[in-house]
Design a protein around this nucleic acid. Structure first.
Lengths: 107, 107
DNA sequence: CAGGAATTTTGCTTTTTTGCCAAAAAGCCA
DNA sequence: TGGCTTTTTGGCAAAAAAGCAAAATTCCTG
């Protein structure tokens, strides 16, 4: 019983990690290629230390993993199944925006 | 450019909604059947008002929808593609717990 | 080894989220 | 209508998350 609670909490942690615009943006960018922190930073535009903290949250949740090469640290996506789900949520958001603009057009 | 930011934020909202143990627990329970609020409340054990607030967050994110029948309000899952992703994150958490216990066993 | 670049950690303040209580809504039924 | 049940809302205090700046770490290069 308690075991299941912990299990659910760990899963919720994955969602929580993905539930921030900057973090999701970075994860999306990592769908194709690995990227170094500096690239991710210029993508989201936040302070470097903020980006680093975001990345550590994603790492701890198991969404991404990091590898150092020289001065740079490269991040890659490890949560492979995310792709299908992202396409799905993106479709969903698209539809919601569409129906919203239909409503707005009527007024 | 700004459009994409908003898009990502809306998507992140879905993840944020799922990123809480009680909410994820309820969503999991809704995978099979719709349930009334009282059933969900006894599942998570929180105060009724807390449960209701959680549900409204899930509703706003578009994860669930509600329908009133008599005194009760029934919630059902609307984010259909969630199923595959949940199986995936659950597999992942399982593996992490397994490898964690292997490490602990060694000590 | 000193200097420099990339990244993380720490400390701190501000903002957001959580969760309980009390009160209000909404629907049922007598 | 009045009382009962179920659910939502508003308000508030406590807990958690976010973000910036300064300091520390790590690795490269001369």
């Amino acid at each position: 019983m308690e075991q299941h609670r912990q299990f659910v909490a760990a899963q919720a942690n994955i969602f929580k990690a993905l539930g921030h615009p900057s973090r999701l943006l970075m994860v999306e960018a990592l769908r194709h290629h690995e990227k170094c922190v500096c690239e991710l930073q210029s993508l989201v535009g936040d302070d470097m230390s903020t980006v680093s903290k975001h990345l550590s949250i994603l790492r701890q949740a198991g969404v991404v993993s990091a590898e150092r090469r020289g001065n740079n640290i490269y991040y890659r996506l490890t949560l492979s199944c995310l792709d299908a789900f992202l396409s799905c949520t993106s479709r969903m958001v698209e539809n919601r925006i569409l129906s919203l603009s239909r409503i707005l057009d009527k007024n």
